[in-house]
């Protein structure tokens, strides 16, 4: 049973890593989006593995269902050509910059995570979604209200930007 869960963990991590590489390196933006969806599914699987099925379902609902559709719309509406902008050759210095920017947190945070690892449980406890709701409306009331405000403001801002574009035509 232990090795089974370990292999499931490893499979999801492989899914996440391959999906992330596709997201960053694919020439076509649509293909990159498909890689992102693969990563999102992997992360959702890790949430299920962490005994948080509610959050895993929310991940599928919000990210795979909504955010990826939004990104697909933005690809479609701007008519980003499948081979145009991302397909051209890059300057060699850019590769160096990109590697350096990825290497700095990889070295420091990776070493910090490995050196300062704290003992962890091997079987996480599952809590009911009702407890989550009580927590959200009890001690976390202020962040809950703030996130709804942020969502409202972003929605209004998006509508405003869209309308201004249409008025100028």
């Amino acid at each position: 049973m232990f090795y089974l869960s370990l292999s499931v963990l490893a499979a999801h991590m492989v899914l996440i890593i391959i999906g992330a590489f596709i997201t960053v390196l694919a020439k076509s933006l649509v293909r990159a989006l498909t890689g992102l969806i693969m990563t999102l599914f992997g992360v959702a699987g890790l949430y299920f593995l962490l005994a948080a099925p509610f959050i895993g379902l929310m991940q599928l609902l919000i990210y795979v269902g909504a955010v990826s559709i939004l990104i697909f719309f933005s690809i479609m509406l701007t008519q980003a050509s499948s081979v145009g902008e991302e397909g051209q050759k890059r300057r060699r210095l850019k590769v160096v910059y990109a590697f350096l920017s990825a290497l700095a947190p990889a070295v420091f945070l990776g070493l910090a995570v490995i050196k300062a690892s704290i003992p962890s449980l091997s079987t996480p406890q599952e809590i009911r979604a009702a407890d989550l709701g009580e927590f959200l409306l009890g001690p976390y009331l202020l962040p809950f209200e703030l996130i709804s405000l942020v969502l409202l403001v972003s929605m209004a801002g998006a509508v405003l930007l869209g309308f201004e574009k249409r008025k100028k035509r």
């Binding site: 990563t39 990825a102 947190p105």
Partner: peptide, 15 residues
Amino acid sequence: VFLLCIGLFGIIWRR
């Protein structure tokens, strides 16, 4: 950490 790093890489790499 891997997701953070590859995200930073992508921000510089993408056009």
